[in-house]
Amino acid sequence: MDQKLSNHLLILNKIVELEHSISLSQQISLVQQIYVNGLEAQEALLELLVKRRNIQKLPFDSLDGILFEKLYNSQSNFIQQSLKSYFPHGLMDFSSSCNIEYKHLQTLLIQKQYQKADHLTQLSLCKLVGLDHNSKRNWLYFTDIPLISSDDLKNIDLLWRLYSREKFGFSSQRQIWLANDCDWEKLWMQIGWKREGIACRYPSEFTWNINAPKGHLPLSNQLRGMQVLSALFNHTFWNE
């Protein structure tokens, strides 16, 4: 068997294995193993992503984020152009109750610019409740939270989840909160918003990379205490 055919079969076998993998760490490993085999391998990953998103229309999960992120960083012009052709608005073409454009947030998250993404998330949430650049405040009250549509809350949470390999997002924070019997102090400590009982100072004492504790980001108005997060964690979205 010649080398080209052997490499082709290796890629196909790895793709099949990847499609049936449910372990996040295994998915990351398999994508990397396939990716390093050159342009043919990257094309195979692109075909898998297109099949999942545009043909099968499967529910979004971490594999979609891993694939898109890897292909987004490809040095191949062909892959870059193909990615733009298949996904002109990014991996997800979102609808929004307030015509929020999520493509920029998606790009920041793919590029791991988490501090900028966190800031943009806060601005987006403010816009969703009717606060714009002319408003006297750029933070949320707990009474604002019900004004955020379920679709928009889902969009923002999904973006953070997909491009952090399920590490960040409101849903991650809420899961930790529920797992700790809704104990706020335990939540602050576990997600790294407090250290030795002392609240972290913004922005220098927060961790703006993927090595942060699970649930660390987005900060979601954390400097204003638990009322906003409580309203967020009790939003009707979670019961839909």
Rank of each mutant, 00 (worst) to 15 (best):
G65W: 05
M189E: 15
R224I: 12
L125A: 08
I156D: 03
G192R: 03
D157Y: 04
R224W: 11
W184V: 00
S124V: 07
K214V: 15
E43M: 09
S29A: 10
T236K: 14
Q113R: 12
I148K: 00
I15K: 09
D61F: 05
S230C: 08
F206A: 10
Q173R: 12
H20N: 09
L223V: 07
D183Y: 00
D61E: 11
L10K: 02
E205K: 13
V129E: 05
N138Y: 13
G130A: 03
P88M: 11
I100K: 06
S171H: 10
K103N: 12
H216C: 12
S62G: 07
K70C: 11
F94I: 07
H89T: 14
N209P: 05
Q56L: 13
L105F: 01
S6I: 00
I156C: 02
L71Y: 03
L232V: 01
L223P: 07
Q115A: 10
K136D: 14
L63Q: 03
I191L: 01
P146M: 07
G192T: 10
L67F: 04
N77A: 15
N77G: 13
S96D: 07
D64G: 05
D144P: 09
P88L: 10
W193M: 04
D181Y: 11
L229H: 07
A44H: 06
I176V: 04
L120N: 01
W139K: 09
L217E: 03
L223R: 10
Q175H: 14
N37A: 03
L63R: 02
Y114A: 05
N239T: 10
Q111A: 12
F60A: 04
N99I: 08
Y163E: 03
H216P: 02
Q222K: 13
S29H: 08
I145L: 09
Q32D: 10
A212P: 03
E185T: 10
S62E: 06
N221A: 01
K127L: 12
Q32V: 00
I148W: 00
F206L: 14
F87T: 02
K186S: 09
M92P: 02
A199W: 14
L108S: 01
Q81G: 09
S23R: 07
K167I: 12
S171G: 11
S25L: 14
S85I: 11
L159Y: 02
K127M: 11
L153D: 02
A212K: 09
E17A: 02
F142Y: 09
Q190C: 08
S85Q: 15
H89R: 14
A199D: 15
I110N: 08
I156Y: 00
K154E: 15
I198H: 13
G38S: 07
Q33E: 14
M92I: 15
Y114N: 00
K84G: 08
A117K: 03
T207H: 07
L58E: 15
K194M: 13
L123V: 12
K57N: 12
N134Y: 14
I28D: 00
C200A: 15
H133C: 12
W193V: 06
Q32R: 11
W184E: 05
V228E: 01
E240D: 14
P88E: 10
P203M: 13
